[in-house]
Design a protein around this nucleic acid. Structure first.
Lengths: 104, 104
DNA sequence: CCGACGTGCAACCCTGGGGTTGCACGTCGT
DNA sequence: ACGACGTGCAACCCCAGGGTTGCACGTCGG
């Protein structure tokens, strides 16, 4: 699971995590406690999700005194989109090649 | 989870399902039994995964006598890539807007 | 017609992980 | 200095779902 795309896919597969990302992007920057106020889950649950998202690189947190401010990272999502498109292209080429091969 | 992108994300989040897709694309077209031979799982497990992938639209199966031939659908993956890129763009716009707003 | 083969379905096991509660620690404001 | 607040950690509950076995049904070939 070390490859970046897989990490992003796993991270975004969870609906709560998608909601979290949406809330975070909407706020621009927020703490785990604040975000927990916007979602129907506990602060600890939000924290766990943020760590998963951070592992995927979709989010980053920096300490500011007693609180941790989290921000979204759209770049990583963009890279993932590119990787997905590339994968789709590979599949497409492969399938077309097979089709051509079958027609002779 | 009815939205297409979420379905694809969930479908591709599982490593076995990614391997399955790879095997299927490589073969071009195959039955559940054949695919099970390439993976370290049972035919029934492969079948379950194929149904999930089919729900996401990444794969389609058609009956041919007593067997079912499955084929990959790169188009859907391509659409998902686009949707992801679009999402990334939305986030990016939102974050830039917030940043600009903060700097005045 | 009968065996071999591919499939579909159902019950079941078991781990992962989403979610919670509870508490200890560090930091801020007054 | 002291309370309020945000965080980190650990234990725990619970269930979705990945995987299995077992069997019944339909289809093909000889």
């Amino acid at each position: 699971m070390s490859d970046p795309l897989s990490a992003v896919l796993v991270a975004l597969a969870d609906p709560t995590r998608r909601d979290l990302m949406a809330a975070l992007v909407d706020a621009g920057s927020a703490t785990a406690t604040t975000l927990a106020g916007r979602l129907p889950v506990t602060r600890q649950a939000v924290d766990k999700h943020l760590r998963v998202l951070a592992d995927a690189g979709l989010v980053a947190g920096s300490r500011a005194g007693r609180e941790v401010r989290w921000t979204a990272r759209p770049d990583v999502l963009d890279e993932s989109a590119r990787a997905l498109a590339q994968l789709a292209a590979r599949w497409d080429r492969r399938l077309h090649a097979l089709k051509r091969e079958a027609e002779e």
